[in-house]
Design a protein around this nucleic acid. Structure first.
Lengths: 88, 88
DNA sequence: TTTTTTTACGACACACGTAACAATG
DNA sequence: CATTGTTACGTGTGTCGTAAAAAAA
């Protein structure tokens, strides 16, 4: 499981749509669609229900979101801590 | 920062060598070398001192190890939790 | 028809293994 | 010389954006 895919996933979750997510991710819809589909295949479960004008997380989607959000935050924090050692 | 690179890093740290790490990572030395070098460039600091027959982590290397280890564990755990939902 | 997601595809970049080189003792 | 890390390089794989199709109301 790739962290980049988790970033895609989180963006879709938070913006409630593939189209919206693609903007914040600075890529195009089609790539978001492809990666989310890949992630769903990999995890063996759907993560979102595609409805008209809105995307709704499944149970597994909700579960993944909590972990993904935390994981990304930790990764980014670690990265910054090493790259920009502030203070002692 | 890519998680795969962190896995490479952890393997080098734990096996105390690029050659040893490459075996457990099922790849070749050269790739480990390249990725660690990339990681060092990206983070803007050396992570290991290359000595004869052994590799020693720098201060930053030690710091990164703690976080990397934790992060990988969390990622793997999350992945398993979604893929193989055991019990209720 | 409008809005959104999916599929197909071509071009470019990256990852991997092979092989040759460098360095250390 | 033996061992370990580095650099160079070709091939395959993946990623990205474009474009066309499908679905939903």
């Amino acid at each position: 499981m790739d962290v980049k895919d988790l970033r895609y996933f989180v963006a879709v979750y938070e913006t409630k749509g593939f189209s919206n997510a693609s903007k914040s991710l600075r890529t195009v819809q089609s790539n978001v669609s492809t990666r989310i589909r890949y992630l769903e295949d990999f995890l063996g479960t759907p993560l979102f229900e595609r409805r008209y004008r809105v995307v709704v997380p499944t149970q597994k989607g909700e579960e993944l979101y909590v972990h993904a959000k935390q994981l990304i935050a930790t990764l980014d924090h670690t990265e910054r801590a090493i790259r920009f050692p502030q203070a002692a």
